[in-house]
Amino acid sequence: MKIEFKDFGAVSSVLITSTIFEFRKHNRVVDTTLFLVPGVVSERRGAFFMKTFISGKNRDALRAYKTVLREANR
C-alpha cells in the first residue's frame, strides 16, 4: 500500500494506491478515514491497481492523511 500527500495550496489530497491483494485493507483504511474526517470527498479508480483520492481543505486532508497512516499501520 502506497500513501501520498499532495498540497495544492488551499486544497490538498491524499492518494492511496494498492493492489487487489490488499482489497480488504484498502477498503478498511478508506472507510475509516471517511468516517472519522468530515469534510473530505473520495474518488476511487482502477480494478487491479486500486487508487483512491481523498481531497478537501488543507486541514481536513492533513487529518485524513494522519488517519490513513495510523490505520494502515494497524
Score class of each variant (00 low, 15 high):
Asp31Gln: 12
Ala47Leu: 15
Met50His: 09
Val30Arg: 03
Lys51Gln: 14
Met50Arg: 13
Lys51Val: 06
Gly56Ile: 03
Asp31Val: 01
Met1Phe: 08
Arg24Phe: 14
Arg45Gly: 03
Lys6Leu: 13
Ala61Thr: 03
Glu43Asn: 06
Arg63Asn: 11
Ala64Val: 00
Val29Asn: 02
Glu71Cys: 09
Ser13Asp: 05
Ala61Lys: 01
Lys66Tyr: 12
Gly56Arg: 07
Ala64Lys: 00
Thr67Met: 14
Glu71Lys: 12
Phe8Ala: 04
Thr33Asn: 03
Glu43Gln: 08
Val29Met: 05
Ser55Met: 09
Arg24Asn: 11
Arg59Tyr: 09
Gly46Asp: 06
Phe8Ile: 00
Ile3Thr: 00
Val11Gln: 10
Lys2Thr: 00
Ala47Tyr: 13
Val41Gln: 07
Ile54Gln: 02
Glu71Ala: 13
Met1Cys: 04
Phe23Tyr: 03
Thr33Met: 08
Thr32Ala: 14
Asp31Tyr: 08
Val37Ala: 03
Ala72Pro: 00
Val41Phe: 07
Thr52Tyr: 05
Thr32Ser: 15
Lys6Gln: 12
Ser55Glu: 05
Thr67Gln: 12
Arg28Ala: 15
Ser12Glu: 05
Val30Met: 07
Val30Gly: 03
Glu43Lys: 06
Asp60Asn: 13
Lys2Ile: 02
Ser55Gly: 12
Arg63Tyr: 10
Lys66Phe: 13
Arg59Ile: 14
Arg28Tyr: 14
Val37Gln: 01
Val11Asn: 08
Leu34Arg: 01
Lys66Ala: 15
Val41Trp: 07
Val14Arg: 06
Phe8Cys: 04
Asp7Val: 08
Asn58Gly: 11
Ala64Trp: 06
Leu15Ile: 07
Tyr65Leu: 07
Thr19His: 07
Ser42Lys: 07
Phe48Leu: 10
Gly9Arg: 07
Arg59Phe: 10
Arg59Cys: 14
Gly39Leu: 03
Ser42Arg: 05
Ser42Gln: 08
Lys66Ser: 14
Asn58Phe: 10
Val11Glu: 15
Arg70Ala: 15
Pro38Ile: 04
Thr52Val: 10
Phe48Trp: 13
Lys6Arg: 15
Val37Leu: 06
Leu15Lys: 11
Phe5Thr: 00
Arg63Trp: 09
Ser55Gln: 12
Asn58Val: 14
Ser42Asn: 05
Glu4Arg: 09
Thr67Asn: 08
Val29Leu: 08
Ile16Ala: 04
Glu4Thr: 01
Val40Glu: 02
Val14Asn: 04
Ala47Gln: 10
Thr17Val: 12
Glu22Val: 02
Ala64His: 02
Asp7Pro: 09
Ala61Asp: 04
Val11Met: 14
Ser55Lys: 12
Thr67Cys: 13
Ile3Pro: 03
Lys25Gly: 04
Lys57His: 15
Ser13Gln: 08
Met1Gln: 04
Leu62Phe: 12
Asn58Glu: 14
Thr67Trp: 11
Leu15Met: 11
Glu43Ala: 06
Val68Thr: 00
Glu22Leu: 12
Lys6Pro: 08
Phe21Pro: 01
Lys25Leu: 13
Met1Lys: 04
Ser55Cys: 09
Gly56Asn: 10
Arg63Thr: 05
Val14Tyr: 10
Ile20Val: 04
His26Thr: 00
Asn27Asp: 12
Ser42Leu: 06
Asn58Gln: 11
Ser13Gly: 13
Lys66Arg: 15
Ser13His: 06
Lys51Asn: 11
Val29Arg: 01
Glu43Cys: 05
Val41Met: 07
Gly56Tyr: 12
Val29Asp: 03
Met50Phe: 12
Glu4Asp: 14
Glu71Gly: 06
Leu34Pro: 07
Gly56Asp: 09
